[in-house]
Design a protein around this nucleic acid. Structure first.
Length: 576
RNA sequence: CGGGGCGUAGCGCAGCCUGGUAGCGCACUACACUGGGGGUGUAGUGGUCGCAGGUUCAAAUCCUGCCGUCCCGACCA
């Protein structure tokens, strides 16, 4: 591609709207342009990267034996009513009517449509398993789009759906997809981890998320420093700590003390000069089913944080966890939120496993401005114990090997074993070898295409701009001629090298804009992040040399002109 | 959904407090010079000041409403 014929406009100033580095660099390098909140156009440079991501994903999917198809973005409500998700889905589902006032939605995902296809096309166990995928636009009306293309409303996703006659076969394909995804992210050259994940609104059993490690990531992931264990923080199991000194502690007898205006754990530990691990806090949540409100008191050690996902799963609550309001707490318990405690509390009690290990603790007395000291669980009857807290760095790994570390990541892929959730509601059946009806087992596997572009930038950038890995770069090589318009030798050499590189199959950009100076060309090239840079100037050319440098390093090397292509070929690193 | 910020040329911003000719930098156009790290000069192009209403002789500026957009929050009792 010739720069003179390519839409390539960079900006010096950081755009005001962008916060995180990938968003800033994508806007500055002219990869994307915002159309509205959470809606972006991909400009030519950006689209080149986008297509590379797509083609690697497609290649690996095809290698795995999956078949590509294409489904519509707009979907009739009938299918969604059949699966039950027309009502289950919240405002994220973009609903609209056509000219005949028929209900439609923009697909946030395609389980319904694919299940409809497969139940019609496939009727025998002999046709299974199949794995069908598409690379297509999705729409989710996010409550808060942010971080550029990382969380948008309209986005492109590769989504695959597999169908099986039994669970074992599903597990097999699930593992194949796990391996396929690992290959994909290796080919991108990204640091990633596959973590155990919550299934959320998609439903189903087993699930892994593929996380690209980045400080700006929206998710926290917990993993062992000495084993394979890795899980989303939402899902990471907290081990009940090994008995320590406190287990030998003898139980004292409790007493109520005055704690005027003490409402938070911080105030409490300062006031009593005690260790935060000796405090217990109590949160009240409510669940509404069939118009009936049920309150639950959740009990945690003072330094621990509630894990909403674990709590919701334990209480079998779908939708958001609702906290009781101050008024509700006052009415229900007769005290304010800062004074609640598990002793003599007439609410369903759920005690976190770690909290249960504490002896002689301090907790609220269910009376304003009063706390109980030296309280013990022997004083409480009728409670459940559950793991409802977030793991902390340094906790024991649940597999017993090593300690937990916590890092942030961007979710770029997610695989699920759905089981029969959709085949049941949509009656997707086959005949088995005995001629009997049987529900198909289903898996689904997503990868965010645009999100990977942003995640790759989050992981690969410096003060000058983006540093693309070879596999994703919009151009693999760029030729930067000095005084193109003045030197016939420079012009001819640049053109010849450009043609030769193109013919050798390397995506090459020729900076042939006559009025551009070296500094401005290099600044653009570095901002855009082209990995291999060839500078051609008369000075070196008179000795038969060009100058080669990599985006990644500041060092430049003099290379014999005739060896240029071979040299670049040796430097390029693309995993096939 | 709650709180806060911002909306003035393609981008980044000033002007608003104290009402009176709409400005600066980048980008863009033309010409000249320059030519190994975002060059210099001269001359230019480009704006319903987010929208609607109100106050006023007069509104980018003051008031009201709406819209858009960004950030934080939506567990930590």
């Amino acid at each position: 591609m010739r720069a003179s014929q390519f839409l390539l406009k960079t900006k010096k100033d950081d755009p005001a709207e962008a916060e995180i580095v990938s968003h800033r660099l994508m806007l500055r390098s002219g990869m994307i342009k915002k159309v509205a909140a959470g809606l972006y156009s991909w400009l030519p440079v950006g689209l080149r990267v986008f297509r590379k991501v797509e083609s690697i994903v497609r290649d690996e999917m095809n290698k795995s034996g999956a078949m590509e198809l294409l489904m519509p973005t707009a979907q009739p409500s009938d299918l969604w009513e059949e699966s039950g998700r027309w009502n289950e889905f919240g405002p994220e589902l973009m609903r609209f009517q056509d000219r005949h006032q028929r209900d439609f939605c923009l697909g946030p995902t395609h389980e319904e449509v694919i299940t409809d296809i497969v139940r019609n096309e496939i009727s025998s166990y002999k046709q299974l398993p199949v794995n069908l995928y598409q690379i297509n636009t999705k729409f989710r009306d996010e409550r808060r789009p942010r971080f550029g293309v990382i969380r948008t409303r309209e986005f492109c996703m590769k989504d695959a759906y597999s169908f099986h006659s039994d669970e074992a076969c599903l597990a097999n394909t699930y593992q194949t997809m796990h391996d396929t995804y690992s290959n994909i992210f290796k080919r991108f050259g990204l640091k990633f981890r596959a973590v155990i994940a919550d299934t959320g609104s998609i439903g189903g059993n087993s699930s892994h998320e593929f996380m690209v490690l980045a400080e700006s990531g929206e998710d926290a992931i917990a993993f062992s420093d000495s084993s394979d264990y890795a899980a989303n923080l939402e899902k990471a199991i907290s081990l009940t700590e090994k008995p320590n000194d406190s287990s030998k502690e003898t139980e004292k007898s409790s007493s109520v003390i005055a704690t005027p205006n003490i409402k938070t754990i911080d105030q409490l530990t300062n006031f009593l000069k005690i260790d935060v691990q000796k405090t217990i806090k109590t949160l009240v949540v409510k669940n509404i089913t069939n118009d009936k409100e049920t309150f639950y008191a959740l009990v945690l050690r003072g330094d621990h944080q509630l894990n909403e996902v674990k709590t919701k799963n334990h209480l079998k609550i779908s939708g958001d966890l609702q906290f009781a309001s101050d008024d509700e707490i006052k009415t229900l318990l007769g005290c304010h939120s800062g004074s609640i405690g598990p002793i003599n509390l007439d609410v369903n009690l759920i005690i976190d496993t770690a909290a249960q290990n504490v002896k002689n603790f301090v907790c609220g007395a269910n009376e304003d401005d009063k706390h109980i000291i030296n309280a013990n669980w022997s004083e409480v009857s009728n409670f459940e114990t559950a793991d409802i807290r977030n793991v902390l760095e340094g906790d024991l790994s649940p597999d017993g090997k090593g300690k937990i570390q916590i890092k942030r990541g961007i979710e770029v892929g997610h695989i699920f074993q759905l089981g029969t959730k959709y085949s049941e509601s949509m009656r997707a059946k086959i005949l088995d070898e005995n001629g009997k009806d049987k529900l198909m087992h289903m898996g689904c596997y997503g990868i965010g295409i645009g999100r990977i572009v942003a995640a790759a930038i989050e992981q690969n950038n410096d003060e000058k701009g983006i540093i693309w890995p070879d596999s994703l770069a919009p151009f693999l090589v760029v030729i930067v001629p000095i005084n193109l318009h003045k030197s016939e030798l420079v012009r001819k050499t640049s053109e010849d090298l450009y043609n030769a590189l193109q013919n050798s199959g390397y995506d090459t950009l020729l900076m042939d804009q006559e009025n551009k100076r070296l500094g401005s060309m290099l600044a653009d090239v570095e901002l855009i992040g082209i990995p291999h840079i060839v500078v051609i100037g008369e000075r070196d050319l008179n000795d038969g040399y060009i100058e080669y440098k990599q985006r990644l390093s500041s060092e430049s090397r003099r290379i014999k002109l005739e060896e240029t292509i071979k040299y670049i070929a040796d430097e390029v690193q693309i995993i096939k």
